[in-house]
């Protein structure tokens, strides 16, 4: 009477079967995705960030910060990155940045077009909303393991898992941004005979840019939040150092890696926030 009746509703069983079916039948598909993610990721990591001398990386980041934000952010970037290097966390940080940059690029490539579709179609918006809610609230551990099944260990499943978590803000804010464009401006565009594409490229996207950049900013923050979690499926970088520090009760080691993540987060946040502001006034 007090216990819930045993209905044996086998959702878990179905999911297991679905995962098994996917592994068996869509291997080629997952291989393509794996390659598509791995190649640029490894290139960014090995042939750019880790290949360049540390001071060149710092100069480039500072220059970008200066150009997009201001000299204060540039100074912050120089000091922050130097500090990370001084703690001996340079290589881990570059690996983490490579994962994040790739994740953010993938998230934007997938998220922005889906956001555009959501803005254009109320039906699609209603359809995607619960899925995005699920993607954001489902504990990441749940899809970390299938990610390993499909994509192996290491950087690629980390990017996939990060994207699952980080795509929703890209979609949501693109959708919101386009929907918030003043209807009169859209009407003005149409009254001059724009095609749908012209309307999108010349009016809706430029005006939605601050929102889209806010989405990118959130995507970056979510990607950083996933860094430690992704180390549990073998993604190298700062997250792994945090995990190692935790597992060894080496608080200092975890702290070094943790503070490095914070520094990377602050630098990226300031730069993308400035990018969003620029969109409103330019």
């Amino acid at each position: 009477m007090w216990d819930f009746p045993e209905l044996n509703f086998p959702i878990g069983e179905w999911v297991n079967r679905a995962v098994a079916w996917l592994t068996d039948n869509l291997e080629a598909f997952f291989d393509v995705i794996t390659t598509a993610i791995r190649e640029p990721l490894v290139w960014i990591k090995n042939d750019v960030l880790l290949w360049l001398p540390w001071w060149v990386v710092i100069i480039i980041v500072a220059a970008i910060a200066w150009k997009i934000a201001n000299w204060k952010v540039a100074l912050l970037a120089v000091l922050g990155l130097f500090f990370i290097g001084a703690m001996g966390r340079w290589d881990d940080t570059m690996t983490t940045i490579a994962i994040m940059v790739t994740s953010v690029i993938v998230s934007v490539i997938i998220g922005v077009p889906l956001g555009i579709i959501s803005a254009k179609s109320d039906r699609f918006e209603a359809f995607q909303r619960p899925i995005l809610d699920m993607m954001q609230t489902m504990p990441a551990f749940v899809y970390l393991v299938p990610a390993v099944f499909f994509f192996g260990l290491g950087l690629v499943p980390a990017v996939v898992a990060t994207c699952i978590y980080a795509i929703p803000p890209a979609i949501r804010l693109t959708n919101l941004g386009i929907r918030q464009v003043s209807p009169e401006v859209v009407e003005a565009g149409r009254s001059f005979g724009t095609t749908g594409m012209q309307l999108l490229l010349k009016i809706q996207l430029p005006l939605a840019l601050p929102n889209i950049m806010a989405g990118v900013n959130q995507t970056i923050m979510m990607a950083l939040a996933m860094v430690v979690l992704c180390s549990m499926i073998g993604a190298a970088g700062l997250g792994l150092e945090v995990l190692r520090g935790m597992n060894n009760l080496d608080v200092g080691r975890g702290f070094e890696a943790g503070i490095s993540i914070v520094i990377v987060a602050i630098i990226l946040d300031r730069i993308t926030a400035a990018l969003g502001k620029k969109g409103t006034t330019a």
């Binding site: 098994a20 592994t23 068996d24 291997e27 551990f141 970390l144 393991v145 390993v148 099944f149 499909f150 192996g152 260990l153 290491g154 992704c230 180390s231 549990m232 499926i233 073998g234 993604a235 190298a236 792994l240 995990l243």
Partner: peptide, 20 residues
């Protein structure tokens, strides 16, 4: 040498390769 990160991931990696 790649770190599996966690025992779950290690098992998943082995199981995934084994099933395939």
């Amino acid at each position: 040498v790649m770190n599996a990160g966690s025992s779950t991931a290690l098992f998943a990696s082995l199981k995934g390769a084994y099933d395939a």
